[in-house]
């Protein structure tokens, strides 16, 4: 059992969902991102996703793109990202890395897995790597994560066939990331029925926790998703809070209070 497993098991036992918060490393600065992620944890985020800034984020909408462009202009390095993971993991919250595949391949999958494991990273979420490619050379992400004990989280989508849901869930270590709707990251007015139907289909094929991402931005949406999922993942809304703040300090305050609102949501939602 990893720290991530413990947190998700504990929230499940309490009959509620865990709040998972995403922010990209290096935005607004490397240190500023660590402070904002720490503020998220203070506000009530149970699990932190650290985003690795990438030049071609084709799963991300305009809000996250905007933040990531700042991080890239700042020349945020893989070393900076690993340091960010280490410092956030030190808060005690299970810390995950969310990254597109190419930076992993370029750095060396084995080398990055070792560095992340040493930094206390619980798992890696790969939005453009499915188990199909993860199992083949030269990626071999399945073999490498098995060897290092690093968790690996793949995505499922409303369009996934039952066969692919089963296959994908079988390869996840930590939780299954269920995309609530067809689309890219960003806040949405509604995140309801499609996500619930997908979670039901995933639960039919696996016992491991299912966390729902894409579109959740406020407490009532969090409560709604928490009523059927093990975790509620929020990204763009936190990024938006930082983007809209006039100073980094205000940004951290806004992130902390959004985290508190969402944490309240995931507590009232469950069953």
């Amino acid at each position: 059992m990893t720290r991530l497993d413990d947190v998700l098991a504990a929230t499940r036992a309490e009959g509620r969902a865990a709040l998972v918060g995403y922010l990209p490393a290096g935005f607004p600065t490397v240190d500023g991102a660590v402070e904002a992620m720490t503020a998220m944890v203070r506000g009530g985020v149970a699990v932190v996703e650290v985003g690795l800034p990438y030049s071609d984020p084709l799963m991300d909408g305009p809000t996250i793109q905007q933040a990531v462009e700042v991080a890239l202009v700042n020349k945020t390095s893989i070393g900076d990202v690993v340091t960010t993971v280490r410092e956030v993991a030190a808060t005690g919250a299970p810390t995950l890395l969310m990254t597109y595949w190419n930076p992993i391949e370029r750095h060396g999958p084995r080398r990055l897995a070792d560095e992340l494991a040493a930094a206390g990273c619980a798992a890696v979420i790969t939005p453009d790597l499915t188990p199909d490619e993860a199992g083949t050379e030269p990626s071999d992400w399945l073999g490498i994560t098995d060897a290092t004990g690093l968790g690996r989280i793949f995505l499922v989508a409303p369009s996934s066939t039952d066969e692919r849901l089963r296959m994908t869930a079988a390869h996840c270590r930590g939780f299954v990331y269920a995309a609530s709707t067809m689309g890219v990251t960003g806040t949405r007015g509604e995140v309801g029925d499609t996500a619930e139907a997908l979670v039901k289909r995933v639960r039919a094929v696996t016992d491991i926790p299912v966390c729902v991402g894409l579109g959740v931005s406020n407490g009532s949406q969090a409560a709604q998703v928490a009523s059927f999922a093990d975790g509620v993942i929020v990204g763009s809304a936190f990024v938006r809070a930082l983007l809209d703040a006039s100073t980094p300090k205000d940004g951290c305050r806004a992130v902390e209070s959004l985290a508190a609102e969402l944490a309240e949501g995931v507590r009232v939602g469950r069953r």
């Binding site: 595949w101 453009d128 499915t130 499922v156 989508a157 409303p158 369009s159 996934s160 994908t168 995309a179």
Partner: peptide
């Protein structure tokens, strides 16, 4: 069968696109 030319090709896309592909 899955579109690999040696180590190249394949599908590195979000799961949401797999059904369409």
């Amino acid at each position: 069968g899955s579109g690999h030319f040696g180590p190249y090709g394949g599908r590195f896309v979000p799961e949401a696109l797999m059904a369409a592909l």
